[in-house]
């Protein structure tokens, strides 16, 4: 089993503080795909309604976190006549292994879909270790 990128199911973590804390916001875990490509691992996440300004992608230690804020585009307080989804923000985090080159992670957001490319860390040349002869 490969574990370069392990999704976490932990929406109840400390959330990035929203501008207005009095506002009640919903949080969702976006569906994702992860596949291997020549460039490395590709993480694809559905983030409908998220714009570039409202998207935070962060690597801290070995954790990759994506957080997308969705500006409410439906009337406040008005219940839908028919509602199949709630409008809220998106949060999901992943554990990265050392196999991923943390410095070269790149991302693109297109029509509400985020693509993160996680290149594999290049393995260094084997280094010869000198052994000094003891006395």
């Amino acid at each position: 089993m490969n574990n370069e990128l392990v999704p976490q199911n932990n929406p109840e973590q400390s959330l990035p503080s929203p501008g207005d804390s009095s506002e009640q916001r919903l949080m969702f875990t976006p569906p994702i795909d992860i596949y291997e490509s020549e460039e490395g691992l590709v993480l694809v996440a559905d983030l409908p309604g998220v714009t570039l300004e409202n998207l935070e992608l962060q690597v801290q230690d070995n954790k990759l976190t994506l957080f997308g804020r969705v500006n409410r585009y439906v009337p406040e307080g008005l219940m839908g006549q028919h509602e199949e989804y709630g409008v809220g923000d998106f949060l999901r985090s992943f554990i990265l292994s050392d196999e991923v080159d943390h410095e070269r992670i790149s991302a693109k957001l297109n029509h509400g879909v985020l693509r993160v490319i996680l290149p594999k860390a290049s393995r260094g040349e084997p280094r010869k270790i000198n052994i000094d002869e003891g006395e």
Binding site: P31, D46, P48, V74, L78, Q81, H82, E84, Y85, V113
Partner: peptide, 28 residues
């Protein structure tokens, strides 16, 4: 919270005084 295995795409309908607003999540 995980948006899996749902009808795609999800649709909402809201009623205003003079119009209806139908919204749908269609990422990508």
């Amino acid at each position: 919270g995980v948006r899996l295995g749902r009808t795609f795409p999800a649709v909402n309908l809201y009623e205003y005084d003079d119009h209806y607003l139908l919204t749908s999540e269609l990422p990508g």
